[in-house]
Nucleic acid binder design. Sequence first.
DNA 1: TGGTAATGGCTAACGATGTTCGCTAAAGTA
DNA 2: TACTTTAGCGAACATCGTTAGCCATTACCA
Lengths: 177, 177
Amino acid sequence: MSLAERPSPVAVRRAARREQILAAAEAIVAADGVEGLTMRRLADEVGMQAPSLYKHLRDKEEVLVALQESALQSMGEALAGAEPDLGSLAAAYRSWALDHPALYEVGTGLALRRNALTPGLESWAAEPLVAVVGGDEHRARAVWAAAHGLVDLELHDRFPPDADLDAAWAAMVDAFK
Amino acid sequence: MSLAERPSPVAVRRAARREQILAAAEAIVAADGVEGLTMRRLADEVGMQAPSLYKHLRDKEEVLVALQESALQSMGEALAGAEPDLGSLAAAYRSWALDHPALYEVGTGLALRRNALTPGLESWAAEPLVAVVGGDEHRARAVWAAAHGLVDLELHDRFPPDADLDAAWAAMVDAFK
DNA sequence: TGGTAATGGCTAACGATGTTCGCTAAAGTA
DNA sequence: TACTTTAGCGAACATCGTTAGCCATTACCA
């Protein structure tokens, strides 16, 4: 850190305000889902008027992209903390998603804005999975997709109410073992 | 069909109007995606004003549910027409989805309104898949989810641009073979 | 230290959205 | 023919994301 690069106090405050807004956005989404996230509601939560948000953010999409990044980050940590076998990873994936259903939706339901995302975050999050299938990227994508599909369908209530989802997950893990 | 059950001409016209509206809705979604489907736009397409739509439909959600049903129907037909092996079914699934991306989104992205749906449609559509995995319902759900996950991630641009998705599909099919 | 520029709030407002209301003319029915 | 139902209409409302314009405070610099 050279002197020239030291961030000015004003920049620090600016960044802190932005973080505060994004944290509030995440809280709203966690509490009330994506459809609960409104610019006015968000502004309210941080104690300002909606138009003032635009002094800190370009538009609502920027909020969603930030949430997407946050989701990827948190999910990646959950996967990294799991035992390095397919069953444990699958379980970690599923429980993270069920614990953060709305954030999961934001994280995976929006088209990925690659250039807006921290470079490498994506592959970093997927890394434990790639490792566990022996480095075969195609297989890794198939497993990832299977897990995502199971979660997505479960979250959207697409399985019959009496479906044994534990068994479905087991079947998936078994297939890729 | 007894005499008493024969639908009156007025009921027939009513139903036809409704069908016309839903067909227009499907066309709009196919052309411009779900976000292009607006009540005013829809009304315009069938030559009326937006409020008049509510003489035929309860609300916009009813339109979406109808589209969901239509998607399930069309997709089920595509699957039923495929060769009864996993590779062919997977290919049929994928190409239907890629041919109808927006309809696919409506069909699978919304929470399923089971009670609003034609009973049995769901399991009918899934039938070819269940058959090909030998009747094991858990395995069938895992395969279904894997296919859905692959399509969903592809449609949302979640795979790296240079990813070989044919290979990913092959890996999935191979795993469940 | 005083003057100037940038920052970060505000209110008002716009256009688009889904939807409700009340009216009316036509169609169907007795 | 008289009544009721139907299916359209325009006006309007609340909510949404967002823009414009204004203003006080803050930061910076001669």
